[in-house]
């Protein structure tokens, strides 16, 4: 969708605001650490784990990135239909998709193109991941 711009905007001017130079950012001695540029979150978290292992005063309840993560649920899981989200009383033994009633099974699950079942399972993290 490209809505017509109301007034012509000078993108260069806008760019200057973000890019600078800024009067508040004039440190000639600033060092650019080379390694900091881009790290995916997974790696950042991995580094944090290593970092925490070097700390001696970490106790079980010290609030770190890992200790504040919510624990697994202890209440029995309720089952829901993978297709509609209604109660999922039944399970297809072939691909373990849950379904609400026979109609869902007959119309959707039986005629499912290959691979779609995995997409449904992926929603609840139950898909098969080949490594």
């Amino acid at each position: 969708m490209s809505a017509p711009e109301k007034q012509p905007v000078d993108l260069y001017k806008l760019s200057e605001i973000a890019e600078g130079p800024h009067s508040f950012k004039q440190n000639p001695n600033r060092l650019r650490p080379p390694a900091r540029r881009y790290k995916p979150a997974r790696q950042v978290i991995g580094d944090e784990q290593k970092y925490l292992q070097t700390k001696e005063n970490i106790k079980f309840d010290t609030p770190t990135w890992f200790s504040v993560a919510a624990p697994p649920s202890l209440v029995p899981q309720k089952h829901y239909c993978d297709i509609t989200g209604l109660r999922g009383k039944y399970k297809n033994p072939a691909n373990s998709l849950r379904f609400h009633n026979v109609e869902i099974y007959q119309e959707i699950i039986k005629n499912m193109p290959p691979g779609v079942d995995q997409e449904y399972l992926e929603l609840r993290g139950a898909n098969v991941i080949l490594k």
Partner: peptide, 10 residues
């Protein structure tokens, strides 16, 4: 119920 989205959390 985070398990709906496959999260193993309470």
């Amino acid at each position: 119920q985070p398990h709906i989205a496959g999260l193993d959390q309470a």
